[in-house]
Design a protein around this nucleic acid. Structure first.
Lengths: 207, 207, 207, 207
DNA sequence: GATGAATGAGGCTTCATTCAT
DNA sequence: CATGAATGAAGCCTCATTCAT
């Protein structure tokens, strides 16, 4: 008992946790929640079952962690994209869409856990999943309200959902194609952005 | 001669099958594929396990049946809507969206099985599910190609997906709201149609 | 209600029963007791499940019937063979072996139900099965006791079992060969008879 | 360092496996394959269902293991017996029969799994079972070909089967007797050997 | 007598989770 | 902290048998 919990140890612990989380995320994305078993995850992560339960309360817990983690990274990606765009609400929205599509396209494995498996998960998980999408939608909804004066009359709630739905479905079907048949991600991103901006009635001269 | 297979008996058999299928559809929609067990289905349908397997090969089989059934009814609903609209490609597209949204809104329980639970299903099921959505998308894609001369330049594949994605997500989130907080279905349908038509660049005067 | 049970009807009933029994025997021989289901039997026999239970108490019952039936036919075949042989105990034994082998070779499908599946059947069935073999053995045992003075000292019980064991295993392995690779049945029969007669120490000049 | 996989742990694992295997072998021998259920096996072995599947892929797997295990032990017993006999082909064959009979007589429970239950097993199992018997037969067949010059003309294939058939049936019926009515195993072994050697026409002076 | 839909007990197997080492 | 054996609830499915028509 000569030693205490050192910072180094905490780091290690964190690292270990990340390894497991990454393995889980990968497998969940590839096969879905139910088809992925804890033994599979620990095999992929190079640990043991017992150890898994040291880092996570249960299977649902890792999925939740994977989901939140993805949510944060998506937010970051979107904010990055916005930050690099000129200060203009519509251009911000455009940048957000493109940032989002590009992120998912660059992290296809993880992207799938957002789409793949939706219900049959405990409502807690389903909620997290929907939260990510919903927060995205809410972002759009807020923007729409701000822009309202410059746009034709809209149902902001519905319209925001159309916006996000368009993005997700476009990405999902794109991910379903074999890699050699995919349009370049950039082109997809732009096409989606264009569709959505037109959809909210942003006149071309606003861009 | 009570032992001859009569037409009445065949009807009864069909009826029984439908009862089970309906129960399964309902439960799948409410809880997803994995959370729904065969015992639950038979309890809901008022039959026995054994009898379930008399009518369906296995659990996957009912799900497939439920899905196909839904697919057909959706197609019918859309075609109906189109048939009642004036002969004009854009108005047809508009009618299709509205018909679709309204159908889903009127059959929320079943609608959910299309959305709820996607992967982790056998690839066969996933394929059926995607086929329904994809066939919808393809319909849109074809229409877009026909209308191409009158529309701005588009990526038809991506755009068609945006179109369907917008529809589904709008409906799904709408179904998530408690009934008393829902915008009237009609209004949603119109909002979505408007979003999509604008999204493909259909100038207002084309309508 | 103008009619009573006529002789013709009884015949019919018997005929129906035989059809089911034959179907069952065939399937049991091909696939064994457990792998054969009642639905399979009725399908093969061209009847219905319900009807099956009119003619037989249960599945075990048909198997028992098939077994007894086979036992009787085997006995008949053996007795036939003996009857046609010269009056000489050893030649009778020889004829019995040959008659038996030839019978099984001519009815391979049924032969197998004697060999295939032995335990895991209810002890009642197992008993019937063993009875057929045992009766055969007892016949040999009796013959051996009669011939004792002319033969070297033997353990009649054990020896009789060797005798029957040799016959069964020879036939069984013969039935396992694809038809085009089988030695002619006649040759097998003779080889087995020779082996057995030598086995009991019947000096060549006794034949 | 209690978490390292130690040699002791491996031993334990092996031991546990053996316990389950032994329980399974016993039950299979007593009741046959189909009548033995996994719950029965685990109860007999003092474990849980889950643990059973940790050690064996499925029920078929244990049966296969039990069968192979038995096959190996039989081979060993036969080889032992041969090794202790004088160097003389016929005496070797005699020793083999006696070794075999004695082994089965000493391990009656297990012996039965070789005899009990033959078809209706997956062809894989049936094959293993037949392989054990067949390998025995082939051994005899080879010996017969070597000895051919000194023996009367024989059909080696058929004769070899007669040989093994005699052995098995003798042992099986012997095992069926209540213990207090059984001839001593040694006597049975000798009687069988005598029957077989005479059967192949080995003249007494060759022994 | 005939039919086939209905029943339900029970078998095999999976897998999240716990716990002794 | 790590390991992996152990547990047992629970799911899917089969099939002998019954019963209403």
């Amino acid at each position: 008992m000569a030693y205490r919990t050192t910072a180094k140890m905490l780091e290690r612990k964190e690292a270990r946790r990340r390894v497991i989380l990454a393995a889980a995320t990968r497998l969940f994305g590839q096969q879905g929640y139910h088809a992925t078993t804890v033994p599979m995850i620990v095999a992929e992560a190079g640990t043991s079952t017992g150890n898994f339960y040291f880092y996570f309360r249960n299977k649902e817990d890792v999925f939740a962690a994977a989901l939140s983690n993805l949510g944060e990274r998506i937010s970051a990606a979107i904010n990055d994209a916005i930050a690099q765009a000129p200060t203009n609400p519509l251009l911000h929205m455009k940048a957000a869409v493109e940032g989002f599509v590009l992120f998912l396209a660059q992290n296809p494995e993880e992207a799938r856990i957002l789409i793949v498996e939706s219900s049959g998960l405990s409502s807690r998980l389903e909620e997290i999943r929907r939260t990510i999408i919903a927060s995205h939608s809410r972002g759009v909804e807020n923007a729409l309200r701000l822009l309202a004066p410059k746009l034709p009359p809209l149902e902001p709630g519905v319209t925001a959902r159309c916006w996000t739905g368009a993005v997700y479905e476009a990405v999902y079907s794109w991910l379903e194609l074999p890699e050699d048949k995919r349009t370049p991600a950039k082109a997809v991103a732009e096409a989606v952005a264009r569709f959505n901006l037109r959809g909210i009635g942003a006149s071309p001269d606003l861009l």
